[in-house]
């Protein structure tokens, strides 16, 4: 019986390892290929290891005019950090208010926000968004998109915060209220410090999605290529006529773009898992 169990476990490990290799393969392939010359990528993709590994692609990407990685990286970084900050600010306050606040239309507002999840207008509403931006004299730019993002409704995060606040005993609030703490004071002094773990989860997920975002940043930087993020720049290179000749640049760029998210994933894996599991089980 014991022996049988050992064999089953061995088979299990082998199967899981095969899946593991298949999962990692495209990522490892990309990173290794980024050290190949363009000719080697095009003519000899069969071998994984570069014949003559060099960092030329990275040097070229760093100094290239059309695909200027330092600028793209700077834009990505600003865009991502601002979005993470505004997401945390808006969702923590809204989550707290929906968990603890007493005011008219609370339920109605919450239902309205939730209903948005089921509205899919396929992008055409961007013209209406442009009209709003024109009305407030804001040109299409990465900055304008950050403003749009600030006014977006991070409903999943609001749900996560609301759920977390509801697990904090209400007695703490009551005691603080007696001490003379106002509604916003309780949030700032008592609730917010207790929300640190869930804020870390939301922050890391927001970092990941902003860094990887393509559709909206592409729309908003169409007329201002200097404001493109790294992901938008990569896609622009792929769609350009010179794409076949720039695989080396694209793969080096892709590797650079993957580093922050892979690092975040390696060090904050716990937070990723927590946020996602909570989303499914509570949802």
């Amino acid at each position: 019986m014991r022996k049988k169990q050992a064999i089953i476990n061995a088979i299990l490990y082998i199967c899981l390892t095969v899946v593991l290799i298949v999962t990692l393969f495209p990522v490892v392939y990309t990173i290794l290929a980024s050290f190949k010359t363009n000719a080697e990528i095009l003519t000899n993709p069969g071998s994984m290891l570069p014949k003559d590994p060099s960092v030329d692609n990275y040097v070229q990407a760093w100094t290239s005019e059309s695909f200027h990685v330092p600028t793209l990286l700077r834009n990505s970084l600003i865009y991502t950090l601002v979005n993470v900050f505004t997401t945390l600010l808006v969702s923590s306050m809204a989550g707290y208010v929906f968990a603890r606040g007493h005011f008219r239309f609370k339920k109605l507002i919450f239902y309205c926000f939730t209903a948005l999840m089921f509205i899919k207008t396929g992008g055409i509403t961007i013209y209406a968004t442009f009209k709003v931006l024109t009305a407030i004299h804001l040109d299409r730019s990465l900055f304008a998109l950050m403003v749009v993002h600030l006014f977006g409704i991070p409903i999943v995060n609001i749900y996560l915060i609301k759920g977390n606040v509801e697990t904090i005993p209400i007695d703490i609030d009551e005691a603080a209220k007696i001490e003379g703490c106002s509604f916003i004071g309780i949030f700032y002094r008592i609730i917010l410090p207790l929300l640190k773990p869930i804020l870390a989860t939301i922050g890391i997920l927001a970092f990941n999605s902003s860094w990887n975002e393509y559709l909206m940043p592409n729309i908003f930087t169409l007329t201002t290529p200097g404001q493109r993020t790294l992901i938008v720049g990569l896609m622009a290179l792929k769609s350009s006529g010179a794409s076949a000749a720039s695989w080396n640049l694209m793969l080096a760029g892709a590797t650079i773009a993957m580093i922050p998210v892979l690092a975040a994933f390696a060090f904050c894996n716990k937070y990723f898992v927590k946020g996602i599991a909570a989303g499914a089980v509570k949802g």
């Binding site: 999962t23 990692l24 495209p26 990522v27 392939y29 990309t30 990941n208 860094w211 990887n212 975002e213 393509y214 992901i231 990569l234 896609m235 792929k238 694209m250 793969l251 892709a254 773009a257 993957m258 998210v261 892979l262 975040a264 994933f265 990723f272």
Partner: peptide
């Protein structure tokens, strides 16, 4: 892991 990688990079790869 593949889930944390940008869709653009997935498409590229």
């Amino acid at each position: 892991l593949p889930h944390v990688i940008s869709t653009v990079i997935v498409g590229l790869i």
